[in-house]
Computed example of a mutant assay.
Amino acid sequence: MTPTVTVDLARLDANISRYGGRAAEAGVALRAHVKGHRSPEIAARQVAAGAVGVAVHSAAEAMAYLEVGVTDVAVAWPWRDPWRWTRFAQLARHCAVTVHVDHPEAVAGLGAAAEAHGVELGVRIEVDTGLHRVGVDPDAAGELAATVARTHGVRLAGVTGYVGLTDAAAARDRAELGRRQARLLVSVAERIRAAGSPCPTVSVGGTPTLPGALDVAGVTEVCAGAYALLDGGFARLGECDPEAVAITVTTTVTGNDGRVLRTDADALLAGADQTWMSGVVMTAPDGAPVSPASVSVGDELRVLPGHVCPVVARRPLLHVLDSGEPVARWQALVRPDRA
Rank of each mutant, 00 (worst) to 15 (best):
T2V: 07
V5F: 04
V7S: 00
D8E: 14
R11D: 03
D13N: 10
D13W: 01
S17Y: 00
R18D: 11
R18N: 05
R18S: 10
G20M: 02
R22P: 01
A24M: 03
V28T: 11
L30G: 07
A32G: 12
A32P: 09
P40Q: 13
E41C: 08
R45G: 10
Q46C: 12
V47M: 06
A48I: 01
A48Q: 06
A48P: 00
G53M: 07
V54R: 01
V54I: 14
S58V: 01
E61G: 12
A64H: 15
Y65I: 06
V73Y: 12
V73E: 13
A74N: 11
V75C: 10
W77L: 11
P78N: 04
P82K: 01
P82G: 01
R84E: 07
W85D: 02
W85Q: 05
T86N: 13
F88I: 00
Q90V: 06
C95W: 08
T98L: 03
H100M: 10
P104E: 08
V107M: 05
E115C: 12
E120C: 08
L121R: 06
G122W: 02
E126G: 09
E126M: 09
D128C: 06
H132V: 04
R133A: 08
V134E: 15
D137F: 05
D137A: 15
P138H: 04
G142F: 02
L144P: 06
T147S: 12
R150Q: 14
T151N: 12
H152R: 15
H152W: 00
G153Y: 05
L156H: 00
G158Y: 03
V159C: 15
T160S: 15
G161A: 07
G161Y: 02
Y162Q: 11
G164W: 07
G164R: 13
G164E: 15
L165M: 13
D167L: 03
D167E: 02
A170N: 03
R172Q: 12
D173L: 07
D173N: 15
R174K: 13
Q181N: 13
R183F: 02
L184S: 08
L185H: 05
A189E: 14
I192S: 13
A195G: 15
G196H: 11
S197M: 14
V204C: 03
T207Q: 13
G212S: 11
L214A: 02
D215H: 09
V216W: 05
V216D: 10
G218F: 09
T220G: 01
V222Y: 02
V222Q: 03
C223G: 08
Y227C: 10
A228F: 06
L230H: 08
D231W: 02
R236Y: 08
R236K: 15
L237D: 14
D241L: 10
E243I: 02
I247M: 15
V249G: 12
T251E: 15
V253G: 14
G255F: 00
G258L: 04
V260F: 08
R262C: 04
T263L: 09
A265S: 11
L268Y: 07
M282R: 14
T283A: 12
A288H: 11
P289C: 11
D299C: 06
R302Y: 05
V303W: 09
V303L: 15
V308R: 07
V312A: 05
A313S: 09
R314V: 02
P316M: 07
L318M: 06
D322T: 04
S323R: 09
S323T: 04
A328H: 09
A332R: 10
A332N: 11
A332Q: 11
R335W: 08
A339H: 12
